[in-house]
Amino acid sequence: MLAFTLRRAIQAIGVMIAVGIISFSMFRFAGDPVNQMVGMDTSGAERAAIRKSLGLDDPVIVQFGRYVGNAAQFKFGVSYQFRLPVSNLLMERMPATLELAICATIFAMISGILMGVYSALRRDSWLSHIFQAVSLIGISLPTFLIGILMIYLFSVTLGWLPSFGRGDVVHIGWWTTGLLTLSGLKALIMPSITLGLFQMTLIMRLVRAEMLEVLRTDYIRFARARGLSTRAIHFGHALRNTLVPVITVAGLQFGSVIAFAIITETVFQWPGMGLLFVQAVQNVDIPIMAAYLMMVSLIFVTINLVVDILYTIVDPRLRSTVSRAH
């Protein structure tokens, strides 16, 4: 078990180094950073001095080593547009994005699993057909369109929910949360649904398909032959077996929820990392873009690792094959 975790962790570090190379190379291919920092009238000597002080004359491999070393300590340099350390900017924005992503994922998991289980157990009911239709819409309509339609309906026409921003936030240490105020919670509803809708439909379809599959297995038939109640069979035996692949997908999707938050945050002007990234792209603010890339990959890699470990907790068969293999 420990060896398995360790091996996966080493793989994860390998992936992060590869991402580091890509994000490092952005600095070199997106123009001369010195030009971005200084004015038109800076002399050649001054430019050379800045170049030297930034270490841009060193061999590439030394620069890369320094970059990775700094990144490992969450030092990503200074933003061109804000003149502030990028890590401070990201830390300031991260709570907003994480809160949004977590709420969206919880929404997607709960409603996706409920709808999936219902439509698997009552395949021919009209509600199941409605769920199927909704899931089709969720999969085929682009996120921004759903966001805009919701803003039009609930903010502009009905005036129930705010159309942008986080509402009032409460500071807990460096973390800011909108979960403790009414306006913060109201502001979370539409972005969470918009962001989570795609995952919800994905989870619902997955749960439905898996559940139908599991209900056909021999051990479910045997459970019925043992006279267990329908409830125990459906929710004790079938659902737990269904959840193994659902955990993987939901876990892996959490990474893309954070990545897709860029669009949702833009639509709802949500002050998170995604919005920061979009602004950075518009202003060619390479340090922010590079740092964002590293952050998102780190989250992806971490989630992958956690999902692998969770797997072994849910499915005892993996536990023993994993320990036997080492």
Binding site: D218, A223, R226, G227, D315
Partner: peptide, 24 residues
Amino acid sequence: MRRIRGKRIGMIFQDPLTSLNPLY
């Protein structure tokens, strides 16, 4: 009928490898 299954009539299936729920 469910109450009779398992209590008054027991059943054994062909494949013991797939008759038991692997997660319990």
